[in-house]
């Protein structure tokens, strides 16, 4: 999503190409754990695709994003699906997450956003996420991943290079990747419950809970 902010109207198309059309399956898996009545925070909700899926499972969602143009699309989409009441959209960055109350969310979901954050923001976001999650709450992430294995990293580069070029030409969008997210989660007081990577290890889906022993 690096340059994506420049062309929100083409964002969804770009992501579809980059994930070779798998984004829908990914979204479906990300909302698996979301249940009726859950209060969910979607960090980097963008055009609202994931938020609305969560709403369809009975949750109410607060979606935050720094891009007003993307939020506008999300708003229109919510109207289209008639779920404006369940979706609260806020134009704000992760740095303002301190405005949410302690233990006020059942789930925090985020797709293709954490990889865009600089190191200090990511750390801050994880800290805040831990604070605002209820006891037993879950952090659910889906994002691009930098494979640990060198060969896979190289293969990944070869496979992705043409895709990145095509996507950039068509939509002027591209994405970046997370590295060592499991370690970062652990050091911020989260315990990964399930981790799912694809074969090339370039996409990671993590469900993590608050770990007990962490003292902030």
């Amino acid at each position: 999503m690096k340059v994506l902010e420049s062309s929100p109207h083409r964002y969804d198309k770009g992501i579809r190409i980059l994930t070779l059309g798998k984004i829908d399956e990914i979204y479906d898996r990300l909302i698996e754990k979301i249940g009726k009545g859950d209060r969910v925070l979607d960090i980097g909700c963008g055009t609202g695709l994931l938020s609305i899926r969560a709403i369809n499972k009975g949750a109410s969602v607060v979606g935050i994003d720094i891009n007003p143009q993307m939020l506008e699309i999300a708003e229109k989409r919510a109207e289209q699906f008639e779920c404006q009441a369940e979706l609260e959209l806020l134009e704000m960055g992760v740095a303002e997450m301190d405005r949410f109350e302690d233990s006020s969310f059942d789930k925090v979901i985020s797709s293709l956003c954490f990889s865009e954050l600089p190191e200090y923001e990511l750390e801050y976001t994880l800290k805040q996420t831990r604070r605002i999650l209820k006891e037993g709450g879950l952090l659910i992430l889906g994002d691009e991943n930098k494979p640990k294995n060198f060969i896979k990293r190289f293969l990944n580069f070869v496979v992705r290079f043409p895709l990145v070029i095509i996507t950039y030409i068509l939509t002027q969008t591209t994405t970046s990747a997370l590295s060592n997210i499991d370690l970062k989660l652990r050091s911020s007081g989260f315990e990964p419950i399930s981790v799912r990577k694809n074969k090339l290890e370039n996409f990671i889906e993590i469900i993590a809970g608050k770990s007990e022993e962490y003292l902030s």
Binding site: E5, I66, M92, G93, V94, A95, E96, D98, Y120, E121, E123, Y124
Partner: peptide, 13 residues
């Protein structure tokens, strides 16, 4: 790319 959020973020974090 240099917007309110990038400034708020660096101040707060």
């Amino acid at each position: 790319h240099l917007n309110n959020h990038s400034v708020i973020s660096v101040i707060k974090t």
